[in-house]
């Protein structure tokens, strides 16, 4: 019983501070020592509604980057997860290196090449720049879903005469559903919140984090409103992924 209450309490502890964000977004005036805003208003939301282009820009890049990362990273995740390599450590390190370096550095390093190649400020350019970070995240999370158990299930299905496509749809995907969902969610979030590389490679193309950051220190209300806009798709993705991770297997 205590465990149930403790679990709920912990969950609330993590969720509550974000509720304050909602209040801040609609508070035209909220100064100490008041626990409740002195005046509510729509100034913040007005500003948020003008960020449509940036919202669409970030969304497009995030979706494409996540999809590409899953497609490219799936085989690598399988190979690593099923421990088919003789030197997994080295490969793993190589693949995970971009995770260890601040995205600001990779973005700045790529800028010059991208300008020369004409990729700066284009959708493919931004997707590639985000991919450097998203791909390793996706592979790292995805590989924990593969292993002996999944291979055994697939082997069983093969002996029963199931075709590769059927094996994929009926055995593999359901088995790794939890980790696939987590990987996709993480990949999406990483791309969605990217600031450093979006600034470096984006060449002024509208992206939501770039619109948001300048307000963070100067105008907390507008920042809070933009933050809520920022959170909306992320929360949707989170809900979808959490549901998917409660797989019966």
């Amino acid at each position: 019983m205590i465990e149930r209450h403790a679990g709920r309490a912990v969950a609330l502890l993590f969720a509550l501070p974000i509720a304050a964000l909602v209040v801040r977004a609609v508070a035209d005036q909220w100064r100490a020592p008041a626990l409740v805003p002195q005046r509510l208003g729509l100034r913040g939301l007005d500003a948020a509604l003008e960020a449509g282009a940036a919202f669409a820009g970030s969304l497009a890049v995030a979706l494409v980057a996540t999809g590409a990362a899953i497609a490219i990273g799936w085989p690598a995740a399988r190979v690593l997860g099923e421990r088919r390599l003789r030197r997994p450590g080295l490969v793993f390190l190589l693949l995970a290196m971009p995770l260890l370096v601040t995205p600001y550095a990779t973005g700045a390093g790529l800028t010059e090449w991208f300008i020369r190649l004409g990729l700066a400020g284009t959708l493919p350019g931004l997707v590639l720049a985000h991919l450097v970070l998203v791909l390793p995240y996706v592979v790292v999370v995805l590989l924990s879903g593969f292993g002996a158990r999944v291979s055994e299930l697939e082997e069983m299905a093969r002996t029963f005469g199931a075709s590769p496509l059927r094996r994929l749809a009926w055995v593999t995907l359901p088995s790794v559903r939890a980790t696939l969902a987590a990987a996709a969610l993480l990949g999406f979030l990483v791309s969605w919140s990217q600031y450093g590389s979006s600034l470096a490679v984006g060449a002024g193309r509208p992206m939501l984090p770039l619109v948001l950051l300048p307000f963070v220190r100067t105008d907390p209300q507008v920042a809070a409103a933009l933050a809520l806009l920022f959170l909306a798709p992320a929360l949707v993705a989170l809900a979808v992924a959490t549901r998917a991770s409660r797989s019966p297997l």
Binding site: R43, A47, G204, L210, P214, F215, V216, T218, D219
Partner: peptide, 13 residues
Amino acid sequence: VRWWLFGGDERVN
């Protein structure tokens, strides 16, 4: 014309 300027002041925007 792409005008790059500080984006944190709503009145300027």
